[in-house]
Design a protein around this nucleic acid. Structure first.
Length: 690
DNA sequence: GTAGGGTTAG
């Protein structure tokens, strides 16, 4: 080997190993890419681009970047590739999930009459995982033909290939025939069961593995922890944690990811954060696990804080980070934050990513701007069914029923077929706009599209019929359901009964809810309010007693409003705000103007055990009113107020805010637990349906 | 040079 080729070889090795570092900044990545270009030029200039040994190294270096085309170009320069070079290029295609690529190269290899070795099969079988079972079986045959029928490496790959096809029974047959099972064989079958939604079987196999005295390594434990996460068995999950510690693997970066994910998925975000913080340099997946853990469990602001930290530290983010951050933005509900996220993304490489844009549409809709949601929707070139559905759902949340249906028709004209999510959006739109006939018809069109309704669709219909006052029809509909009605379905009936003061059916719904979901405070409050609206005070007292016996307290309402980038949260009668004096003065002024305008609150629907003055006091101090008053005193006249409330809008506040919107001449947008209300000129966009 | 795992919109 000449001195030049030796130095190039060293250079390529260092380049590849440097690239495998887990967390690199985008700046570092671009520098290294330039480096790769320079090396290739040197290879060509020195005529060494035909040297198989160096080309393998170069191909590997390219593949670290995912630059398969570059690798392929280098490969083609070699006139008679040997097995290692074929393997390198097949491996590269397989790693990058290029559909058909590895298989095509494998075929080319056979045409060139180069015999595959066991390495070849590892890569080809990995690539088969995403294609057809028939092809997989064919390659399975080849492994025997070329003498690898009992090679444990090749057989392990077969186990995971069959698992990826969803054929766990075939995977199990291969696994059962294996004589010398390694920890990898066990992990392959365990993760196969996890991937195919059978965590119980996975855990059974793990127990067997332990009985066979096979010591689990960190990858095995990662699979097992996923299984525990899926069976929702936290007690057992903790014992795995114990095993991890015993084996001294608790600082293994990928184990930390699994622990973080396992605890975050349970909502134990503080525990998850403990593991995250223990890592000096968390990798991208760990950042993502923590951010999405926060976002999914209602800790939107924490998620955003972490996302901003990543950016300020110049850590590379990917589309999953973006989606998790956007999900968090949707939860926080601040339009200011939403536009910041959108602005950040429009300057990033993910600006055309359909998944990211779908999340943006959803976020804008949930942050109260259906207009901006539509702007994002319109700028996406290739709209898939999920994007259309997100936009339809956005209109639904805002009660723009007709607009949702119009968009649905447009979607069909564009040749996109609806899926179950599309119908959830449509039915939500109909129920939020009181479009009973349209919703009913759409529901019955679902089978024409080959879609079977599930719980959410059924509960939309119950809601749709119930709110319109067709309570008996809603009940008959529930009785005729082909699947067992669940919490959402009975919950929809109960809240409709509350609106229409239908005690008999309401009690039936509540009974079911107390069985299915006994610790949800909301159901008890609904039933109590239903009794109060019918003046059945003894019944109200009984429900309250049931709640006390079960140790349940009424959920406290709170509302947030963002002013100049700072999010302020108010509770009932909250006097902790620094500008509290001004806020209550404004509330007083509003109260007087409301009375002058003829506003009288409904007393029946609130807690019965308060006296008249207390009721009125509580009503005026509800969290949404405090947020409105604060918005009025701290923004310029005419500014739109955007408020988020954790519970459903209260009937009295709803009617009061309608009038307030006219009195102060402002648009007030409130996102409650279920939908949006746009108050303007004395009316609300929900048309009093909610 | 060997395989197995983890984050994932509606």
């Amino acid at each position: 080997m000449s001195l030049h080729s030796f130095s190039l070889s060293l250079l390529l090795s260092s380049l590849s190993s440097a690239l495998s570092k887990s967390t690199i900044t985008s700046h570092e990545a671009s520098l290294r890419r330039k480096h790769l270009d320079q090396v290739y030029v040197q290879l060509i200039v020195s005529g060494l681009h035909k040297c198989r040994y160096l080309v393998i190294k170069f191909v590997n270096a390219c593949l670290h970047f995912g630059d398969v085309n570059y690798a392929h170009k280098a490969f083609c320069e070699v006139s008679e590739p040997d097995i290692p070079l074929w393997n390198a290029i097949i491996k590269g295609y397989a790693q990058k999930n290029i559909v058909g690529g590895p298989i095509r190269m494998y075929m080319d290899m056979q045409i060139s009459q180069v015999h595959p070795n066991c390495f070849t099969f590892l890569y080809v079988l990995k690539a088969c995982g995403g294609t057809s079972v028939e092809l997989g079986k064919q390659i399975h045959g080849h492994t025997f033909k070329y003498g690898f029928g009992s090679n444990v490496f090749v057989q392990n790959s077969l186990v995971s290939m069959y698992a990826k096809f969803g054929q766990t029974s075939s995977a199990r047959i291969v696994f059962d025939k294996l004589h010398d099972r390694t920890v990898v064989s066990w992990t392959s079958i365990i993760s196969g069961y996890v991937q195919n939604g059978d965590p119980m079987e996975a855990l059974k196999v793990f127990k067997e593995m332990r009985q066979c005295n096979v010591k689990p390594d960190w990858i095995a434990l990662v699979s097992v922890m996923t299984a525990y996460t899926d069976v929702e068995d936290m007690g057992q999950g903790k014992s795995i944690h114990g095993l991890v510690t015993k084996l001294g693997l608790e600082f293994e970066p990928d184990i930390v990811i699994s622990l973080t994910t396992m605890y975050a998925k349970r909502g134990l975000v503080e525990v998850a954060r403990f593991f995250f913080d223990r890592m000096e340099k968390p990798n991208l997946i760990l950042w993502n696990a923590m951010i999405s853990g926060y976002a999914k469990n209602g800790y939107g602001e924490e998620a955003i804080k972490l996302f901003r930290e990543m950016i300020s530290k110049n850590i590379r983010v990917d589309s999953i980070t973006m989606r998790s951050a956007i999900l968090a933005g949707a939860q926080v509900g601040s339009l200011e934050l939403a536009t910041w996220l959108d602005g950040y993304i429009s300057k990033s490489e993910y600006r055309d990513d359909t998944f990211v844009n779908t999340a943006l549409v959803d976020m804008y809709a949930k942050c109260g701007s259906i207009y901006l949601a539509r702007c994002v929707f319109d700028r996406v070139a290739n709209k898939d069914v999920v994007l259309w559905s997100a936009m339809i759902m956005g209109y639904g949340l805002h009660g723009h029923g007709q607009e949702a249906i119009r968009l649905y028709n447009e979607m069909k004209q564009a040749g996109v077929s609806p899926n179950d999510g599309t119908f959830i959006g449509l039915l939500t739109a109909c129920k939020n706009s009181g479009l009973v006939k349209e919703g009913w018809e759409l529901f019955h069109q679902m089978p024409n599209h080959g879609i079977e309704p599930h719980h959410q669709h059924y509960s939309c219909i119950v809601d749709l019929l119930g709110r319109a006052g067709y309570l008996n029809q809603a009940y008959d509909f529930i009785m005729s359901m082909p699947i067992k009605p669940g919490v959402t379905v009975w919950g929809a009936l109960l809240s409709a009964c509350k609106i229409h003061r239908e005690v008999r059916l309401g009690e039936i719904a509540a009974q079911q809810l107390f069985i299915l979901d006994p610790y949800n405070t909301g159901h008890y409050v609904q039933l109590s309010n239903l009794y109060a609206s019918a003046h059945l005070w003894t019944h109200v007292a009984n429900v309250r007693l049931m709640m006390t016996q079960k140790g349940l307290n009424k959920d406290l309402g709170h509302s947030s409003i963002e002013i100049n980038g700072s999010l302020e949260t108010f509770h009932v009668g909250d006097r902790s705000h620094p500008r509290s004096k001004e806020i209550f003065e404004e509330l007083d002024r509003l109260e007087k103007r409301l009375k002058a305008a003829g506003y009288v609150p409904h007393m029946e629907s609130v807690l019965h055990d308060l006296n008249h003055e207390e009721i009125e006091e509580t009503l005026c101090n509800h969290s949404e009113r405090l947020a409105v008053a604060y918005g009025i005193v701290s923004t310029a006249p005419g500014t739109t107020l955007r408020i988020t409330k954790n519970l459903r809008a209260c009937v009295n506040c709803h009617s009061a805010i309608k009038i307030i919107s006219k009195l102060v001449d402002r648009e007030i947008i409130i996102r409650d637990a279920k939908r949006f209300h746009h108050f303007k000129d004395g009316v609300c966009s929900c048309g009093d349906f909610w």
